[in-house]
Simulated assay, not measured.
Amino acid sequence: MHIESIPMWEGSGNNYAYLVTDEKTKKAVIIDPANPSEVLPHLKKATDSGIKLTNIINTHHHHDHAGGNVEILKSYPLPIIGGKDCTKVTKTPAHGETFTIGEGIKVKALHTPCHTQDSICFLFEDGNDKAVFTGDTLFIGGCGRFFEGKAEEMDTALNKTLGALPDDTKVYPGHEYTKGNVKFGVKVDQSEAIKKLEAFADANKQTQGKFTIGDEKRHNVFMRLDDPAVQKFTGKTGRVNVMAALREAKNSM
């Protein structure tokens, strides 16, 4: 499986689209191609080289993820797999439903309602390689705002659904927010794992695909709700209360 990251709106939204290709068959999908003017040149280059696009995938309906669908469809009239509220969506897979890309890549849909109620993360597996595309649910060192859900839902999304994935699953989020997330993380806890993430974020412009679910369990405070240091920062106990307090504190930064 080959993953090409396509940065969009650098300096403002700092979004990512992802082109994922099955290297055996050259079949590929484009994930969250929200800004066509930045994405289409990459798609043209890929298709000119023999890659066959089969689907658009959306992680949720927000404009900076699904807002490019109409324009992309003009050049690539493809079925759209995504949350039920995504523009022009063709199919919304059930939680746990799987499909394949080419011969090598198995994809599993993981419903993660909270940021939006139609949020879906997508686990891609190709042999021993595992990657999860998390939209605005899980960021490196952080999580999305609770626009359409509550703290309990984000705890379930992060710590039960995504937290149950193999520790070596690489994380590909919808935005490059790591610097801001780790700035908050070091306020919560001065652990070695968080300091290590801070050093990486200071030294690297992009962090997508560089960290795993196992890493997130160590350096992401939203995945450490039972940790005494995190509970001390929030002044709360109980996972849902700690999650809610963390998000409120991050919102007010």
Rank of each mutant, 00 (worst) to 15 (best):
Pro79Phe: 04
Gly67Arg: 12
Ala17Gln: 02
Ile80Arg: 08
Glu103Asn: 06
Glu152Val: 05
Lys150Ile: 12
Ile140Gln: 06
Ala151Gln: 11
Val186Thr: 09
Thr234Asp: 04
Gly13Ala: 09
Asn159Glu: 11
Asp215Glu: 14
Ala66Leu: 06
Thr178Gln: 03
Val29Arg: 02
His115Tyr: 09
Phe139His: 02
Asn181Glu: 06
Lys160Val: 15
Thr237Ile: 13
Ala229Val: 12
Asp136Arg: 13
Lys52Glu: 08
Val186Asp: 09
Gly135Met: 02
Lys160Phe: 12
Asp48Cys: 03
Ala164Gln: 02
Ser12Gln: 02
Lys45Leu: 10
Ala34Asn: 02
Leu158Met: 11
Glu192Leu: 03
Thr207Lys: 10
Glu152Gln: 08
Ser12His: 04
Thr237His: 13
Asn55Gln: 01
Lys187Val: 11
Tyr172Arg: 07
Met223Asn: 13
Ile6Gly: 09
Gln231Asn: 07
Asn241Thr: 13
Asp167Ala: 14
Ala131Pro: 12
Ala28Met: 05
Pro93Gly: 01
Thr207Arg: 10
Gly13Tyr: 11
Met223Arg: 14
Tyr18Val: 07
Lys195Ser: 08
Lys84Val: 04
Asn55Cys: 00
Phe139Ser: 00
Gly141Phe: 01
Phe200Arg: 06
Asn14Lys: 03
Lys232Phe: 01
Glu216Arg: 09
Lys150Thr: 13
Lys217Pro: 07
Lys44Asp: 15
Ile3Met: 13
Cys143Tyr: 01
Gly235Leu: 02
Met8Val: 15
Val182Thr: 13
His175Trp: 09
Phe184Met: 01
Ser75Lys: 15
His219Ala: 05
Gly180Leu: 05
Thr90Tyr: 07
Gly83Phe: 05
Tyr16Val: 00
Gly163Trp: 10
Ala244Asn: 15
Ile57Asn: 01
Gly174Lys: 00
Asn159His: 11
Pro7Glu: 07
Met1Arg: 09
Asn35Tyr: 14
Pro113Leu: 01
Ile120Lys: 04
Ile51Asn: 08
Phe222Gln: 06
Ile194Arg: 10
Trp9Ile: 10
Ala229Cys: 10
Pro79Ala: 01
Phe133Leu: 04
Glu103Trp: 06
Pro228Asp: 02
His115Gln: 03
Asp129Gly: 07
Leu53Gly: 12
Ile194Asp: 01
Val89Gln: 00
Thr207Trp: 09
Thr54Asn: 06
Asn58Val: 03
Lys91Asp: 04
Thr112Pro: 11
Val230Asp: 00
Ile213Gly: 14
Ala203Ser: 11
Ser49Asp: 08
Cys114Pro: 03
Ala229His: 11
Ile120Ala: 02
Thr134Ile: 07
Val132Gln: 07
Met243Arg: 14
Ala164Leu: 08
Ile105Arg: 02
Ile213Met: 15
Asn69Glu: 04
Lys84Ile: 09
Lys24Tyr: 12
Tyr18Glu: 07
Phe211Arg: 15
Lys27Thr: 12
Ala131Phe: 10
Leu138Gly: 03
Leu138Lys: 01
Thr98Tyr: 02
Thr156Ile: 03
Asn159Met: 05
Ser37Gly: 14
Ala249Gln: 13
Thr87Ile: 03
His62Cys: 15
Asp136Val: 11
Asn181Asp: 05
Ser252Asp: 15
